[in-house]
Simulated assay, not measured.
Amino acid sequence: MSANPPATTTPEGESDRPRIEEREQEGGNWAIATGRWTALSMSSRRAWEALSSNLAGVPPRDDRAWDLRPIEQLDHIGAQLLWNHWRHAWPARIEMDSQHKAVLDQVALYTCVAPAETGPTLADRFKSFAHNGPRMMFVARDFLRLIGQLTLDVGKLLSAPHRAPWRDFSGQIYHFGTTALPITALVGLLIGVVLAYLTSQQLRQYGAETFIVNILGLSLIRELGPVLAAVLIAGRSGSAITAQIGVMRVTEELDAMRVMGIPHGFRLVMPRVLALAIAMPLISMWTSMAALFGGMIAADLALDISPAYFMSALPRAVPMANLWLAMSKSAVFGVLIALIACYFGLKVKPNTESLGRGTTSSVVTSITVVILVDALFAVLFKGVGFR
């Protein structure tokens, strides 16, 4: 037991104020706590600021001894303040009464120390990869298997055309292409009008009204037309493909086809992929024509550019290479949309919840892939189609 420090005297009127005094004694450095360490004595702002500055001037040290016996009254608020000041650890040397020790023991027992947040360790990263890595590899494996099976089915179609499901193929072209013409034309027309009006406001400031033909022609034929058509087809036909095949899974028609020896790829996947590969370039050209028509009407109304001048200047402003590029990447968009839709449709489990989740995933993935592939085409063919 350490030697007791001498008693201290306090000025009159301040005996109730909680405070800590430092003393140098033969036994070492002593921190002596006096006053009433209660919520009532620390309720005023002045008392709290004074105690905070007092505690800041007495930082916790391993070689400092603490004497809590002069404390007149200690409640859980004062004990919590001392325990936090000690950084949730008992000092090496301490003198206190039994009632004060009981309060401090309760505070020390029920005070939870929040663990410090640490970054993921190497083991955590390995576990995360072990959980998500194989799943991504399984998806890549199944998708590559679907592409390989499509290649084999196309080779089978070329070797034996009389065995091909031509009726399914023509029906898919009708559903994916013909029935999509009204909505794609309407959206393309409105996009052309909006783009023409926004562009005309800027071109009029510089007296470059005639360049609206170049802007509309390149942007609509080369980029906006194919991408807009692909997004609409992904939301309309891609979701329909996934829902059709998913319903066949729910109603066990896929299992029945397997039992009867009818291959899923040859009868379900290949007709839809080929139908969209043929329909998408035509829909893209149709959407671009509707958008150009809307832009031509808006240019006539906003900039007094006659439709005759617009039609005569369009071939000079937009080289034919842009049209071939747009149709080529539209065919790629159609193949990817159909493959993604068929993949998610074949992965649907025999319940309605999985059907809805698969349809949503199909549309989102198709639109994302379309935008990524369009960006890839823009980088690869950045020097094609410009005079």
Rank of each mutant, 00 (worst) to 15 (best):
V58P: 01
T9P: 06
F211D: 07
L220H: 09
G27A: 12
I183M: 06
A302N: 15
T360M: 10
V213C: 12
R93Y: 08
L224H: 05
L376C: 14
S98Y: 05
S43Y: 04
S98V: 05
V373T: 02
A140F: 10
L40S: 14
I147D: 00
K156V: 00
I233F: 00
L376G: 14
A378M: 07
L218R: 06
R387C: 00
P18R: 10
V348N: 06
A160H: 13
A290M: 11
S128R: 15
T10G: 02
G265K: 00
L51R: 11
V335M: 13
L355G: 02
A92W: 02
L274S: 07
I173P: 00
L276F: 03
T121M: 08
L380K: 06
M136V: 09
S98N: 11
L282G: 03
G148S: 12
V187S: 06
H100Q: 07
Q172T: 05
A234M: 11
Q205G: 01
A279M: 15
P263D: 14
Y343A: 09
R46Q: 15
R272V: 02
I337S: 03
V273Y: 03
T365H: 02
R145M: 10
V187I: 14
G238E: 13
L323G: 05
L152V: 01
Y343H: 14
A7E: 13
P319H: 09
V335C: 11
W324T: 08
S98A: 14
V250T: 07
R167E: 07
L218F: 11
V348Y: 01
Q244V: 03
L203E: 10
S53E: 15
I245E: 08
H175Q: 08
V231W: 04
Q80Y: 03
L254G: 08
F126A: 15
A299R: 06
L314P: 10
G265F: 02
F293V: 13
W166D: 04
G225V: 04
L355C: 03
T210L: 13
A123D: 05
I337C: 01
G57I: 03
I245L: 12
K329R: 07
A130D: 10
L224T: 04
V250M: 08
H131C: 10
A47T: 07
M136P: 00
R61D: 14
I283M: 12
E22D: 11
A114I: 04
R36I: 00
A321F: 04
V103K: 11
V269K: 09
I94S: 06
S330A: 15
T151N: 02
L268S: 07
A277D: 01
D168N: 03
L268K: 13
A164F: 14
N351I: 02
N322M: 05
A140P: 00
A230G: 11
T242N: 07
E24M: 07
H76E: 15
R17W: 06
I340Y: 03
L181R: 05
D168E: 13
P319D: 09
F143D: 05
F211N: 12
D124F: 04
N132R: 13
L40I: 04
G57E: 14
A298G: 08
F381C: 03
A326V: 01
D304G: 08
A302M: 10
H88G: 04
R249Q: 15
